[in-house]
Amino acid sequence: MKQLLKKLSEAYGPSGREEQVGRIIRDELESCVDEIYTDSTGNLYAVKKGTGAKIMVAAHMDEIGVIVTFIEEKGFLRFSNVGGVNPYVLLGQRMIFPNGTIGTVGMEKLEDIKKLTLEKLYIDIGAKDKEEAASKVKIGDVATYYRELGEAGNRFIGKAMDNRAGCAVLIKALQEMSKTDNEIYAVFTAQEEVGLRGSRTASYRLNPDLGLAVDVTLVGDTPEAPTMDVSLGKGPAIKVKDASVICHPKVKEMLEKLADKENIPYQLEVLVAGGTDAGAIHLSRDGVPSGVISIPCRYVHTPGEMVDQDDMLNAVRLLTAFLVQPLNMQEIFPCYLS
């Protein structure tokens, strides 16, 4: 798990520019799935053919970043955010561009640090002037945090755990799962961080019987944290609700029962703000019953995101068990009212 997560976490893949992550995932999965392909939104599909229920499992592979909008005469790069980037977190970070160019984030002189906005920041790639800068970076290039994966006991610290941790879990599940009749569409989605865009077009394309997302979630176990009952290390979380989706009660219940049966520790998650791919999937076409398995993650959207190895391994167990179980859609989603 560590090696896989390290590769994924350190890979470059901001929203809209996910190809490098996609290649790593393809190499991991090529030998254990029937088909791999991409689409115009940037999603990567890995398919295990079957005759049973058609399940879509989404894990987004994009990460947040910053997009260069202007190169100043002196070679400094101005930028805008791709996804939820906090200027205070950005300050002083090392950033990396797809061609390997690195830079550091500097700040204009500021009387009051409370007035820090993205417009006051710039990236310095060590260029002497505009010309040198432009030879390394073009307007429109996107940079992400430049950070190695670190280990802290049984926990990992790094960038883009949101959601390479979810990608790693999904990859492991596909590699380790036993035979099943279910037709499984693992979709490593693009552009989740800018509005669940990849999963929206992917779920429309696939029109699955059932949708599942694997993503990270916030925790409530740090000092003065938001009020929620999810802790790091207490198992994967089964989502009840967030701002984008109220998980189908039946899917949530199926996940709970399965975890109980397999003796997998789990937690129930009510996330007040924030969304995930299931938000787009469940509203696709005439509706797709959907659920979410979340990996608890501290310090989301910083380069120091922290996840717990056991949570990830247990998420793999839960996901695998879910994907291989026989599913009779007519039985699971009858007209309950009759």
Binding site: D286, G287, V288, P289, C335, Y336, L337, S338
Partner: peptide
């Protein structure tokens, strides 16, 4: 006729 769709609309 009455039916319920996958999202629960009746």
């Amino acid at each position: 006729e009455v039916r319920q769709d996958k999202m629960g609309n009746i």
